[in-house]
Every structure is written in C-alpha cells, then in structure tokens.
C-alpha cells in the first residue's frame, strides 16, 4: 500500500466514524503529530531505503489483508509507547541525578545541608563502579550526558557472560582491600523486558560479597522484569532496585483477556494472532516466539508490549510491529536483532 492509498483509506474510516465512537480522527491527528515530532527519530530505519514513517506505516497496514486487521494495526498506535532520543537523555540525567545520587546519599547518610556534603559525595562517587549490563545502555553517552569524569573502565557484563570470574572481577575492578576500593556497584540497563537478559548478571553482582552494595537502575522496565528485580531485592538485602520508568501493566496485551483491559485489546489480540502466520514463516527456526513476542508465560499467558525506543525495538514488543518477512510482512519499526532473524 502506498502512503496515498493509505491516506485515502484512513479518510474513509474517519468518514464512516459518524459519531466519533471509533476515535479515528483523534488518533489520526495524534499519529500525524507524533510522526513529525517523534517517530521519525527511529534509528534502525533511518538509512537503507526503509522509507520515512508515513511510507513504513502504509506498507505495514497494507501487509494485512482484511480491513478489520488493518484497523487493529492502526489502533495499536493508540497504545504505542515510543521512547525517543530526548526521553533517553532525560532518563540518563534522572538515573544519575536522582537514582544514583539518592542511593549514595542514603548509603553514606549524607546530610546535603552539611558543609562537607560535597566532599562526602565525591568520596562516595570514588567508591562507585558504574557498569552496564549490555552495551545498548550506552554507558559512554551516559557519562558524557552527566559530565561524569574519572571513570576509565566502562564495564559491560554481557561481554563477560562466558568467562566471568568473581575473583578476577573483584581484583581488577573493585580492589576491595585497597584504600581506593570500589565497593558500590551500579548496574545500568536501557530496557528490561522479562528480565532474562539481566538475571545472571544481577545475581553475579549480588554474589560478590565483601561489603559491596549494588544498585540496579534500568531506564525502562516492564512488569515481569520489575517483579524479577523485586524478587532479587528480597533475596539480597544489599541490592537496591530503582528504575527510572516502570512501564505499567496496562501497556501490555496478554494472550488471554485480562479483567479491565482496554477495550481495543480484544481486536488487537485477534489481529496479532491472525496475522502471525504472515509475520513469521511457520516452522522457521529463527526467533519465533509467537504472536506476543519474547517472554515467559504469566497468569494470562504470554504478554506483548507496544514499546519502541528510538534506538531499537525490544524483542518483547509484538512481532507484528517489528518483524520483516520479505514478500509477506513489512514492519513499522524494524528490529535490529543480536540473534539471527
């Protein structure tokens, strides 16, 4: 479908919505505004002939055959949570100025009105090792955004997934017996979905002992990941969990209807299940997590999100939004995956 064809179709939907109960006009207005102000920030499709947002939107809607599915896809945009570049910078600044510094003030019992507060905070910061779970957090940019000096090591836990050794890590990065020891560890991550990717690394950080304290500070976290983090806090008293934004459960759709879910979700659920055979080739060995994307089963089955970050699309977002299958399905926000796809 071309953008012109899609506009014509959308006009028809608005025209037929005679009493406004479908809300097409308001949604169209919002999408056009956000397309201009936000959605065009999406990095993965910026180059490579993917087309701008309006081109991708038309192709995406045109990937579905039935008009009811096309309408459900468009309705998904009402629920889309797009975290753009400005939001990322704001989250970086909040993570440091609010979450990290508050944690340090609490640990060091710093009275901010005391004359030596600055010195105390500096000494606490010198005891802190800022790390990232995966490189998608962008530790380098975090440090420059917050003007943090003197962090020569930018430790990424995922890089040491297979050869991590507690003693080596402690000796190389914490130097716990040294006067210049670092016994305060911060684990950052940009986005946590189910938590499976952070699980091992949080456990490792918490198992170091030797009087270390750990702060887990994801910028954005989904309900399942947040629950996992809270379970860790219950297990490890020296772990603090302080996310910048916990995305509420209402922003996720479940395999089975949840009480008080949004009235749009019934149609969306039907559509994402109906189009999944187009989105992913049946029997494909490559990343087929089902219509709701990556994640474990919950009380209402698997859940899928509508979250997109300007840097990439998480894998627990509905695959119909981010998955490409040449000749069958065009994504709205193509995901750049670590795994073969």
């Amino acid at each position: 479908m071309t953008p012109n064809e899609f506009q014509s179709l959308l006009r028809e939907w608005c025209q037929n919505d005679f009493d406004g109960s479908e809300g097409w006009l308001e949604l169209k207005h919002d999408v056009e505004f956000l397309a201009q102000e936000l959605y065009n920030e999406y990095d993965v499709t910026r180059h490579g002939g993917h087309g701008n947002f309006s081109v991708r939107l038309a192709r995406w809607i045109g990937s579905a055959d039935a008009q009811s599915d096309q309408q459900s896809l468009y309705t998904m945009l009402r629920h889309l949570v797009f975290l753009g570049d400005k939001e990322l910078v704001a989250a970086y600044r909040t993570a440091y100025s609010k979450h990290v510094l508050s944690w340090l003030m609490k640990i060091g019992r710093v009275n901010v009105f005391a004359p030596n507060a600055r010195d105390l905070m500096n000494s606490l910061l010198n005891r802190t090792l800022l790390t990232q779970i995966t490189d998608s957090f962008g530790l380098r940019r975090f440090l420059t955004t917050n003007s943090i000096q003197g962090q020569p090591v930018r430790y990424t836990w995922l890089e040491h997934e297979h050869d991590w050794d507690r003693d080596n890590f402690t000796a190389a990065h914490l130097k716990l017996s040294d006067p210049n020891r670092r016994d305060l560890i911060v684990l950052f991550e940009d986005f946590v979905g189910s938590g499976s990717q952070m699980e091992d690394h949080v456990e490792r950080a918490c198992s170091i002992g030797g009087g270390t304290s750990v702060l887990l500070c994801p910028l954005y976290i989904c309900p399942m990941g947040a629950q996992m983090a809270r379970d860790f806090v219950a297990m490890y008293p020296h772990l603090t969990f302080s996310p910048v934004l916990e995305i509420p459960d209402e922003k996720f759709i479940y395999e089975r209807q949840k009480p008080e879910e949004h009235s749009d979700f019934a149609n969306i659920r039907r559509t994402i299940q109906a189009v999944h055979t187009k989105v992913v080739e049946q029997g494909s060995a490559l990343q087929d997590y089902g219509p709701f994307g990556f994640g474990a089963d919950g009380p209402y089955g698997k859940s899928g999100g509508f979250v997109v970050m300007s840097s990439n699309c998480p894998d627990n977002t509905i695959p119909a939004i981010h998955r490409k299958r040449t000749g069958h399905w065009e994504p709205l926000f193509l995901r750049n995956s670590r795994e073969p796809i």
Binding site: D30, K106, R230, T240, E246
Partner: peptide, 15 residues
C-alpha cells in the same frame, strides 16, 4: 488517551 503521557516516571520512590 492511554498514551505514553499517562506513564508515571518515578521520582520519589525507592524499592
């Protein structure tokens, strides 16, 4: 609206 504007950024709580 159910847009991302409804999201509550956490500024005053700690776990």
């Amino acid at each position: 609206n159910n847009t991302q504007l409804d999201l509550n950024f956490r500024f005053g709580e700690e776990d």
